[in-house]
């Protein structure tokens, strides 16, 4: 089975979501990567280490801004040229728009929010948790190209070594694809890993009591080498940036360890983090719903527990 994997990049790094999908593709068949936009040629060879046998790259000027429609043109041309059985994407704001535009353009089936992929009796099967992850649905496609968006954090990149051959390719932009233009870009300041990339997430909700209390979480995340996330309620209140919002209208994350501090565990938050490996919850309300879907629940005051835990982690790591 031949896979084409869209490798989104930001700055000078390939995104983890695309690399995770690439590793899965390499495990199931032939994995061909594609990197589009500024810096693509320099980044493309690096995908070899994560399973790509070949990587297509284009730095066409239409691809310079991080906008979806010219990317649909590029991928549509590449799919026609390469005839892959499937095209995989790691979910993001940009990739979801590219995948859906490509589905319409090629009249190709798109399954999204997949947490895994497998080949069963020669057919590609996607795993998709549904209804707030209460049901696991196996999904398929009627024919190629099969398009798939993989939930962020669901597949870890696998470093397998090896190099990839890099090839450039040509495509034509559609008349409407370059009408939308990027006027300005604002990067949010962040130190440490993003919440999509982090193995450990320390998340805070209204139970923190005040915006400055996020410092407690930042210190713990720092000690653990993780990232800080937030609930919709505190993002809406302006306590923490939207980029860190986990839940139905934010990100879906699945780190190895998720520490929820002062988060009640509303369904809207639950759908964004219940795929995490281990969930530790700290909340002073013993009846908080989060205690129904965590692995370790602690009834107590996060303002006392979190700083102590930070000290203990630092001591443990220092020793």
């Amino acid at each position: 089975m031949k896979f084409l994997v869209f490798l989104e990049h930001h700055g000078d790094a390939l995104e983890k979501g695309g690399l995770g999908a690439l590793g899965k593709a390499a495990a199931l068949g032939e994995a061909v990567g594609v990197v589009l936009g500024e810096g693509a040629s320099a980044l493309a060879p690096g995908a070899g280490a994560f399973g790509a046998s070949k990587v297509f790259a284009s730095e066409d000027p239409a691809l310079a801004p991080p906008l979806p429609q010219p990317r649909v043109d590029a991928l549509a041309a590449l799919v026609v040229q390469e005839s892959p059985d499937a095209v995989l994407f790691g979910a993001s704001v940009l990739s979801a728009d590219v995948a859906a535009g490509l589905a319409a353009r090629l009249e190709a089936g798109l399954n999204w929010d997949l947490t895994d992929l497998e080949v069963r009796d020669g057919e590609l099967v996607g795993k998709r948790p549904a209804l707030g992850d209460t049901v696991m649905v196996d999904v398929g496609w009627t024919d190629a190209p099969r398009l798939a968006l993989v939930r962020s954090g669901a597949l870890d990149p696998v470093e397998s070594g090896g190099g990839a051959e890099v090839e450039s390719f040509e495509f034509e932009t559609s008349d409407f694809s370059t009408l939308a233009t990027l006027v300005e870009q604002t990067q949010e300041e962040s130190t440490g890993p993003s919440i999509e990339d982090a193995d450990v997430i320390v998340a805070g909700g209204r139970g923190l009591g005040a915006p400055d209390k996020f410092t407690l979480l930042e210190e713990l995340a720092n000690a653990l080498g993780g990232a800080v996330a937030a609930t919709r309620a505190v993002v809406d209140a302006g306590w923490y940036p939207y980029a860190t919002q986990v839940g139905q209208t934010g990100k879906t994350v699945s780190p190895k360890l998720y520490i929820a501090a002062g988060i009640s565990g509303a369904i809207q938050h639950k759908v964004g983090m219940q795929g995490s490996g281990t969930i530790v919850a700290i909340n002073k309300d013993p009846n908080a719903p989060i205690f129904d879907f965590c692995d370790l629940g602690v009834v107590g005051d996060l303002h006392e527990i979190v700083p102590k835990l930070t000290e203990l982690v630092r001591a443990q790591r220092g020793s």
Binding site: A108, C294, D295, G297, V299
Partner: peptide, 20 residues
């Protein structure tokens, strides 16, 4: 062009521990 093949239970979380 997409199909639903099968429905199954989600992976279980296993036992949880609650402490005060």
């Amino acid at each position: 062009k997409t199909t639903v093949l099968e429905l199954g239970p989600p992976p279980s979380r296993g036992d949880s521990v609650k402490i005060e």
